[in-house]
């Protein structure tokens, strides 16, 4: 995370890839105890990862990372469960021990098409080409006649939009 905060994209991806199974290990027992299926598991995990990303400035690099991560997970997971009408009262610290079963390519119920449709034309094009297809942001930006800064802003806005969609999708359950 320290490297990531300095802008090291590779380090950040490695970190997030490690964070995902850790979060699954926290959220899965929560869902099971509340007597729900695991259908929402990856949605909550992804929503939490988005929160980790957007709130990363609240982590103090002088302090250990895990307590911060667990606190974010606790807040987001409990918030998500509460929104769907379940009373939760559990101690997460004891639960993160239970390991997540390996999952090949975890997927949320929110599919790419729904996400893309919720974005405006420019954002959709950017997300589709850069994120889904995997082209470089400089290349796609040039194609659309956008500066690096404008591409960044548009992608950032689309992430915020995604955050709102996570909140809503569970509301409709």
């Amino acid at each position: 995370m320290r490297l990531a905060l300095e802008g090291d994209m590779g380090a950040y991806k490695t970190l997030l890839a490690a964070v995902a199974p850790h979060l699954r290990g926290i959220v899965r027992p929560l869902l099971m105890r509340s007597g729900r299926g695991l259908a929402d598991l990856e949605d909550i995990v992804q929503e939490t990862m988005l929160a980790v990303h957007l709130k990363r400035a609240t982590w103090d690099p002088a302090l250990p990372f895990l307590p911060w991560l667990n606190a974010v997970a606790r807040y987001k997971a409990i918030d998500a469960l509460r929104r769907s009408g379940f009373r939760v009262d559990v101690d997460i610290d004891t639960m993160s021990e239970s390991l997540a079963a390996p999952d090949e390519r975890p997927d949320s119920t929110l599919d790419s098409v729904t996400i893309l449709n919720a974005l405006d034309a420019k954002q959709r094009k950017l997300v589709e080409q850069i994120i889904m297809v995997g082209r470089s942001s400089a290349e796609v930006g040039a194609e659309l006649g956008m500066t690096d800064g404008a591409v960044r802003v548009a992608l950032h806005r689309s992430l915020k939009r995604l955050g709102k969609m996570f909140g809503k999708s569970r509301h409709a359950d």
Binding site: L16, A20, E42, Q46, M49, P106, I130, M132, L159, L162
Partner: peptide, 10 residues
């Protein structure tokens, strides 16, 4: 959406 894709996005 696959979590992998979200990681790329973030």
């Amino acid at each position: 959406m696959q979590t992998e894709k979200l990681i790329d996005w973030l």
